[in-house]
């Protein structure tokens, strides 16, 4: 039996609805009769695509005048829930803003949040979230108890986004109440770190580098190999923490979740933190000089060798094609 209604936090960047939103909509329309979205911005900008993916209504705050979205969206939702009642489930993506809104809303409503969810199990009114722990070796299923509003944070790439062919969603205003002190954080500038080639989260092939590269300048090998394979370059947390590449390159628990056809791990040992972000790849190739490295336990092809010897030869072979 399906739930009556589910709300999904819709996010957009550069005028495009984020993939995580569409992934959640695919699951939401499978488990609920009616799916609505809420959005920080102008609802008309997203109504068509959200409708096409199964949302019947989008509640939109309108322009938030450069406020961080957490406080206004959480306060507006809490007010709407108080006025009109709560849905059976509220879904957020595990994104910067998704976590901000979910945390604030949870505190406002005294509602629990089940986080890092990769699947939902619905049985009548009962809802449970499945969360991978210990680097994805164990799945913990947690069920909501009690009468509080149910909030889940969904990990990217948990569901496949697919249009359902619906018409544009109805747009309804979501009124933001007075936020007092909580609403005083203001964005004064937005800066984009330039990356070339395909986007990390969407690339069919990802080539990532780790501490085994030895020094920052050797990351250039990862970039060259990525370019030859039309792949996106990625990185382990170790070399992001070390300042070799920007945070936006990071694959893993605290970085991006990728699910490419091929993932090439160069000089990455395979800390659980990293594996959670890439073990969904269809094929994994690993190059590492330590044959005991955990990455080899999940790699389809493992080369026990020095990245400084294997990668230049690989690059040369591909350049010669």
């Amino acid at each position: 039996m399906a739930m009556d209604n589910v709300w999904v936090f819709a996010e957009a960047a550069d005028g495009q609805v984020k993939t995580i939103t569409l992934e959640m909509l695919a699951k939401a329309r499978e488990i609920a009769d009616e799916v609505s979205c809420f959005f920080a911005g102008d609802g008309d900008d997203v109504a068509e695509i959200l409708g096409e993916h199964g949302a019947s209504t989008v509640f939109a705050t309108g322009d938030l005048d450069n406020a961080l979205v957490g406080p206004p969206v959480a306060a507006a939702l809490a007010a709407k829930i108080e006025a009109d009642g709560a849905p059976d489930l509220i879904m957020f993506g595990t994104t910067y803003d998704g976590r901000d809104v979910a945390g604030r809303l949870s505190a406002k409503l005294g509602a629990p949040v089940i986080t890092n969810v990769v699947d939902l199990v619905v049985d009548g009114d009962a809802v449970a979230g499945v969360e991978p722990v210990f680097g994805g070796t164990t799945n913990v299923t947690t069920r909501f108890t009690g009468d509080a509003v149910k909030i889940v944070l969904i990990r990217p790439k948990s569901f496949a986004a697919e249009p359902a062919g619906g018409s544009a969603a109805d747009v309804e205003d979501l009124d933001v109440p007075d936020l007092g002190n909580t609403g005083t954080a203001t964005v004064t500038a937005r800066l984009v770190e330039e990356t070339s080639g395909p986007k990390l989260e969407e690339a069919a092939i990802v080539v990532s580098g780790g501490r085994g590269l030895g020094e920052a300048s050797k990351y250039e090998m990862v970039e060259r190999l990525a370019k030859l394979l039309k792949a996106a370059p990625g990185a382990s947390r170790a070399i992001v923490d070390a300042g070799w590449v920007p945070y936006s390159y990071q694959v893993g628990q605290t970085g991006k979740v990728v699910k490419p056809t091929v993932y090439v791990a160069c000089g990455i040992s395979g800390a659980t933190q990293h594996m959670v972000g890439m073990k969904g790849a269809k094929y994994i190739i690993a190059i590492n000089k330590d044959k005991e490295a955990p990455i080899f336990s999940i790699a389809d092809l493992g080369i026990v060798g020095d990245v400084h010897k294997v990668m230049p030869k690989l690059i040369e072979a591909l350049e010669g094609r």
Binding site: A128, T137, T138, N139, T142, S297, I303
Partner: peptide, 28 residues
Amino acid sequence: GGQEIVEIAAAEAREAGRVVEDEGEGFA
């Protein structure tokens, strides 16, 4: 908490594939 753990289960494990020692031809 308003939540309870109902199941703890081993996740479907990825199988290790072929592991090859590089003796100069690993790239191939």
